[in-house]
Design a protein around this nucleic acid. Structure first.
Lengths: 317, 317
DNA sequence: AGGTTTAGTGCAACTGTTTGCAGTCTAAGG
DNA sequence: CCTTAGACTGCAAACAGTTGCACTAAACCT
């Protein structure tokens, strides 16, 4: 029914091992036989059975990608790029999501570990200890989290955050709020450290907050009370919620308060105001992570971010 | 190194076949032995090797999902739901994207066919003939396309479109444009048929158009020239582009023209105007498709859509 | 009591590929 | 002309499970 290596062998008058080799080690077989085998294989419609191959070699040619939430607009470009990179090297990609529950993370890694050659973890929330334990089961590369010993792809939010605050400073803002993210987030810490380094700015930190519109909305009150004219939000969702919340309090953006987001996930041209934000190289990160994984190189990479200035920032009045 | 079924067999004093059965057909083995085997397996940290299992059974316990573009906000909720449904039944999901190129579709199916037990195709663009050919290679279920012989999950856009046009009619609009989608799209045809059935409305069809913001933007001119007061757009992206385009021509939404989109993909509360649109049950579709696939039932299902009324529609003035 | 079902387990063949080892043949080196 | 190193290719044993069949022993039936 399904055509196997044996059928091809029989039809082309060679031994199965030769057929096997024309696919997995072409240089070991004579050019003439190789082309013969290949044409016969083509005619018969032979496709190597990956399960069988996996069984002998121990490599599945599958990779796993674990993100917090597939439906979070931050991730799809990353997933897409990772997928493309994998495909290019004849790997396939499983995508899983933890639904923002750190507990699901370990469980997923366990479930995947036997059937992938490696894993990409995006902003994992598990403890260092847990991650080190998992690293023994299956090789992985981490995105947006510093972890000694593991290959790492970082997006330099720190740099982006500094650009953002400098942008606000340049517009004349002197008192700026940082509406931070969830406690324990590497990204959030990174942003804060960078923001604090900008000279000539008085920084007030408001948080921790949930990294959602709701979280931003809830922070509006405190932002107003802080008496700031500029805000850097943990991410775009928070920024959106915040702008909405400020509106309820009678404060207009950017007229009364300037707001900068992070991630650049807000699509569409319909947004008012269009959000000034820090664009993240998500696609590059996805691609790179997969490349590192396949080539089994253990490196730490830091990707550039950039500030996109739109309409949610203006000089203070 | 890796612990196999044989190690478990030895350690628990039974034959490998018994161990195999405690995992793949528990009812066939005595309760006492079963628990003994299970505890031994647990102690040894045994995990069944899916590749080996796939080799003998011919079933990989993997499914494939092919969409046009992972990064298109319409799909992630569908992917997420499909993934969750698969996981629940101990299946894993490969996601692939065609990058909107119909040619990539067939190629992907080919590549997947040997290593998945089934495929979910979202709005496939290949010809009926090509699809029928592919159906012989691997079972699949189709989302948003009618195809005899294949299991099908439809989202009832027709109904949604009718609701939308009736909503416009109810507001007092008499002349309405349908800014349609790409030629050959099942969805676009469906929308048109439904829209034409609404009584008391003069419908002018403008299109075909690219299903993008750019496409909508480009259609603005013709919409103005058509002298309509209401518009139903092929999807939200088109609607957004159109609103932008109308703006450039000096027409305000909803004051001068009412616009209804389809898909409900525009997130965030910052949009002005907030788009009246037809919400699609994408998550339900993803879940259902996977369920149908796993259970190998061949059915045609039609999922309800609903109209979400926001701020982009108003009575004509 | 004798025959028959039934539950539980063992045996061994089989799945499709890879790969170390051994053999053959050719061409180059001495 | 003999030796030897390559270049190819064949052989057969893995890889980690599943499954039809045979077998045993206990339970059931009349």
């Amino acid at each position: 029914m399904t055509v196997t290596i044996r059928d091809v062998a029989r039809a082309s008058g060679v031994h199965v091992s030769t057929v096997s080799r024309t696919f997995s080690a072409p240089h070991m077989v004579n050019a003439a036989t190789r082309t013969r085998v290949l044409t016969v294989a083509e005619e018969l419609g032979y496709r190597p059975n990956r399960a069988a191959r996996a069984l002998t070699t121990g490599r599945t040619h599958n990779l796993g990608l674990i993100v917090a939430d597939i439906a979070n607009p931050f991730f799809p470009p990353l997933i897409k790029a990772a997928h493309a990179a994998a495909r290019q090297r004849d790997y396939h990609l499983f995508v899983a999501d933890t639904d923002e529950e750190p507990a699901a993370e370990e469980e997923l890694v366990q479930a995947f570990s036997k059937q992938v050659d490696g894993l990409v973890l995006c902003s994992p929330r598990s403890s260092n200890k847990a991650l080190e334990r998992l690293a023994e089961r299956v090789p992985f590369v981490v995105i947006n989290r510093r972890l000694r010993g593991a290959a790492t792809v970082l997006m330099d939010v720190g740099h982006g955050a500094r650009l953002a605050v400098e942008h606000l400073a340049g517009l004349g803002h002197r008192r700026v709020a940082l509406v931070s993210g969830p406690a324990g987030s590497w990204t959030s810490a990174e942003i804060r450290t960078a923001a604090e380094q900008v000279a000539g700015i008085e920084l007030v930190v408001i948080g921790p907050n949930a990294p959602t519109e709701r979280g931003g909305f809830a922070a509006a009150q405190r932002v107003r009370d802080a008496g700031v004219t500029g805000v850097l939000a943990y991410n775009d969702l928070v920024a959106i919620g915040l702008i909405e919340g400020l509106g309820e309090l009678g404060l207009a953006v950017p007229e009364d308060v300037s707001v900068v987001g992070i991630d650049d996930i807000v699509p569409g041209r319909l947004n008012r105001p269009k959000l000034t934000t820090v664009a993240m190289p998500t696609a590059a990160a996805g691609r790179l992570a997969v490349d590192l994984l396949i080539q089994e190189v253990s490196a730490t990479t830091s990707l550039e971010t950039r500030l996109v200035i739109r309409d949610s920032t203006a000089p203070p009045r």
